[in-house]
């Protein structure tokens, strides 16, 4: 620190890097697309409710993809819905993140063989950051998935290398 070391006595100044500031801001207010697909969506709603309280991590549902940072694909992605999921993702502004919640969205789940209408993993249409296993995952698992995503964002860098 040298010249400026211990020169500020007021205590209301924080010194950090731009990178850390950006990452901290991004990971602390992950607004999710208000969007659910199947039974996993019920668990997601339970996670948002007061008992598990998603809001303490800054996660609140936004009714528009244009104001959202993260999309939680919570449930079975049918082929019909896959095109809509892709469009929702494309409407989100950068930086954007994807949590794939539950076995269906991870790999097709119980529909992997005879599900003539199911997309076998949402990663076939949009890039996924965190996969949360479970059928459906408990709210604790989804919270763990969110913490993993926050960890990923915390280690992001503005530089190329």
């Amino acid at each position: 620190m040298g010249l400026l070391d211990k020169e500020f006595s007021e205590g209301n100044i924080i010194i950090t890097t731009t990178e850390n500031l950006f990452n901290w801001a991004r990971l602390s207010s992950l607004w999710q697309v208000s969007f659910g697909l199947a039974c996993c969506a019920i668990e997601m709603m339970a996670t948002s409710a007061s008992h598990y309280d998603f809001d303490r991590f800054g996660v609140i549902p936004r009714p528009s993809p244009r104001q959202s940072d993260v999309i939680i694909v919570s449930g079975t992605v049918t082929l019909k819905m896959a095109l809509r999921v892709k469009r929702l993702y494309e409407q989100m502004p950068d930086p954007k993140y994807v949590i794939s919640m539950g076995s269906c969205s991870n790999c097709g789940g119980p529909y992997w063989e005879h599900g003539y209408h199911v997309l076998k993993g949402v990663d076939r249409v949009i890039p996924v950051d965190v996969y949360v296993p479970g059928c459906p995952p408990r709210p604790e698992a989804l919270l763990e998935g969110l913490l993993k995503l926050q960890e990923k964002i915390r280690n992001e860098s503005l530089s190329k290398s």
């Binding site: 082929l79 896959a82 095109l83 790999c107 097709g108 992997w112 063989e113 003539y116 997309l119 076998k120 076939r124 249409v125």
Partner: peptide, 9 residues
């Protein structure tokens, strides 16, 4: 394939 998406597992 359906709309460019692979259908089988």
């Amino acid at each position: 394939f359906y709309q460019g998406m692979k259908v089988p597992y």
